[in-house]
Each structure stands twice: as C-alpha cells, then as structure tokens.
Design a protein around this nucleic acid. Structure first.
Lengths: 228, 228
DNA sequence: CGCGGCTTTGATGTTCATCAAGTAAAGTGG
DNA sequence: CCACTTTACTTGATGAACATCAAAGCCGCG
C-alpha cells in the first residue's frame, strides 16, 4: 500500500472523515495510495470506469469535457480537498468529465468499494460526504451561472479575481493555465481574452508579464466584474 | 398529517425509498404532506430557510435565480421525481435558488430532520438519495454545458427537443413557459428567441400557434441542435 | 371594449468571433 | 548550447451574430 501513512495531518480528516474513529481511519489509510501528477497530466478521463475515490491533496486541477465538435469546455479549476472527479461516483460508473493537473499535484486514491461500504455503514460519514459533494456541485453551478450572466470584460475580471481570491489568496500570482484555457473556461475566444487582458494592462488595472499577473487595482476589477 | 396516504403507488418509492421497510415507509408517509401549487406560484424562494425535504409529485417546475442586476436566470425546468429544490439540503441551510410551478403541480413535503435522521440510520437510503441528488446535479451541469456550447438557433432547437423528448415525450405540446422564460433559460434575448421560432416555422420545421408547438421535422431540428 | 401584458417584426448598433500575420517563448534534436 | 521547430501569445482588420430599441399587433381579462 502506501509507505508513509501521514493521514494524521491531512486536512481531509476534518472535512469528510471527521466522523470516523481511529481504527477506521487507520484502515482507510492502509487502503490509500498517493499518486503524484505533473502539470498537464491527466488524472482521469471522460468515459473511463470509476474504480476509486480520489481527492486532491495538493496542487491544482482542471475539470473539463470535450464537446462533440472537439473543443474543450473547462467546467472549473479547483484546489485541494475539492474532489471534483468524484461528483458522480455514486450515480454513474463512468466519469462524465476529465480531470487534469494544471499544477504539479498529488492525488489520494482509495478503493471505491471501501468508501461505498463505509458510506453504508457510517451515517455520519455519509452525511459529511453528501454535504461535501453537494457543496462542490453547487459551487460549479453557481460559478457557471455567474459567468454566463457577464459580458467579456466582466468574465475576464471575474476569473482574475477567482484566481486571486479563491485559489491563491494573493494579488500576485502566476496563471496556471494558458490564455486558451481561460477562454474555454469563460466561453470566449482566445484572441478576445488576450485583448481584454491587454486592455486591463493599458488601463493600469493589472500588470502582466507572460503568465505572471499582478492585480494593481482590485477595487476597479471588482466593479468591472460586478457590472459585467 | 395527510388525509389519504397513497404513498403505495408513488414512483418515488422505487427510486429513493426502495431501501426502506414497510414500517418506515408508513412512518414516512405519516410525516408527509401534499401541497398543491398553481401555475406561477413559488414553491420555494432563494434565501429562504430550508425546513423540509420536498419532491415534485406531479406537474412541472422551474429552478431559477435572480442575478444581482435583477434579471432571472433559469437553471432548469424539470418534471416529477427530480426534486430540484433539494440539491443542497445537506450542505446549506438556505435555498440558493428559487423554484416555481410552471404548470399546476403537487409537491410532497417531509420534515427535513426526519429525512436527515433516516439518512444517518439507513445506509441504503442514504446511498439512494446521494445517487439521486448527484444525478440531478450532473444533469443540470451537463445541460448548461450543452447549451453554452451552441449558438442561438442551436439553443432554441435544443430546448424544443428537450420539451418534446425529455418532458412531454411527444412532438405536439404546449410550451409551459413564456418566450422570455425560454430566453432566460438559454441565455438569449427574447426577441431573438421569437425570431428563431419564426424562422423554424417559415422553414416548415415546426408549427407554432401561441404556446402550442408541433415539431414537424424532428430530424432537421436534431441536426440544427447538434451542429449549433 | 379598452387596457396591459405578451408577442412579433424591422431597423440599428454593439459585441464578439474569426481570420491573418507577426512576435515571443518553449521545446527538441544535433 | 545553439539552430530549428513548434506552440503560445499578441494585435489589427473585418464581418457575423446577437442585443437593443421601437412600433405595431394580438390576446386575455376586467
């Protein structure tokens, strides 16, 4: 199984596994495997069979699907302990969406049958997991609706604020994705995403050097995002 | 509680309550209340406290929210046994979205604490409910992504097919919503929804008289929806 | 039978995608 | 480590798609 079982310090315990007693956690831990992924690697693939329960321990991942016409639609980009690949483990036997690492990431994997058995046995665990998965689904739906409602500049502002506030908690960060991926995220063309970033730069709202972003005037960006 | 407890014939038993034994179902039934809603009435309101578990027994409902700027965003329109108001009963204490009846509807209501207790006690029930809620969330996300990817005509075609296939299972039906509500659903302007319907009519793909719709050439509509 | 809301259509303008062409950056093989 | 190749980024010009505005028709309801 895994070499160094450091589940003791895992944030996840507080969230979903809070209801488990020590022996169960030990057993869970012995069923667990940690898997590292490099930036760009695919964690799971649309259509693949779901055989394990996975959650992101560290890094950053992108949830996406491919449209019939072959383009990529980014559904969300999310950080540790939001196990986006697992939204339908109880309702489907195959993944509906793909997940890939947009930064070097570590994923913890537990046999799905083990989790299901635990779910059946332990009501508190079941409820914690249900709450967590509902929250994630809700976040995705809300974000999608928020984006849909905005125009181009509003969307770009929104996504910059999302990275700054939700993901990195700092006004200075490196974009983890390409301009095209941002475009696929907010449903715009790549050219116009770049154009809008250039506009923001010209107006002194942000500083951009390649992937490096600094939000200079966050208030203005908030206004643009809201008004958009 | 309720006068005539006809839960025996409720389709819901097969879905979520399949795991419950007869006494529990009887108890559940005695906790249940049926509530009728007229077309247009609000079933629950964004921001309201969630105090009960609700599911749609008959009719048709619209899940929506109001944007900061006051416009309505329709999230989905759905039929019985897809209890859309309950997607976050385990993760939030207030509704994030509003639900209203777009046709005369009957909603079954069960005290939330009772459901939660059952969820904790009965693993099978918990799993059934989890699967159901996941499925609904997934359906909403998939539909939103499908719509987002299409252009105007594709979206209108998609929504007509949705009513014809998913909701009414017939090529001839009455639109349960106004043109504006369709526009709010697919994220387009009302005028352009109407224009597109007129175009379809002119091309002989559909017949439209007020709210009455007949899909004449369903194959063509499918092509438009897919290509859109 | 007249009033108000929903629907319809045309005209106009804005927003945004697409195309093209050029530049920078990042791999890749010798 | 450098030349080469490829991929990502950038900007401008153009046109298509779509929203908005306005005016008129329709329909249900008091």
């Amino acid at each position: 199984m895994n070499k160094n079982c450091v589940c003791e310090n895992c944030e996840f315990r507080d969230i979903v596994f809070a209801y488990l007693d020590e022996p169960t956690i030990q057993e869970l831990c012995s069923h667990k495997e940690e898997q590292p992924f490099r930036k760009g690697e695919i964690i799971n693939h649309e259509g693949e069979k779901i055989t394990s329960f996975k959650y992101l321990k560290s890094g950053l991942v992108k949830l996406y699907r491919r449209t019939p016409s072959g383009e990529e639609q980014v559904i969300t980009i999310t950080k540790p302990f939001e196990f986006v690949s697992n939204m339908n483990i109880f309702s489907e036997d195959r993944y509906h969406y793909s997940v890939s690492a947009v930064e070097d990431s570590v994923v913890c994997t537990i046999n799905l049958d083990f989790i299901k058995a635990l779910f059946l046995k332990n009501g508190g665990f079941a409820m914690g997991l249900m709450a967590k998965i509902s929250k994630i689904n809700d976040k995705i739906i809300t974000q999608t609706l928020d984006i849909r409602q905005k125009n181009l500049v509003g969307r770009v502002a929104f996504i910059l604020l999302y990275f700054a506030k939700e993901i990195y908690s700092t006004r200075v960060f490196d974009l983890p994705v390409s301009r095209k991926e941002i475009a696929d995220y907010i449903g715009m063309s790549t050219a116009n995403v770049i154009r809008t970033l250039s506009d923001f730069k010209r107006e002194g709202i942000i500083k951009v050097v390649g992937k490096a972003i600094e939000i200079v005037n966050i208030e203005k960006l908030e206004i643009i995002s809201k008004r958009g």
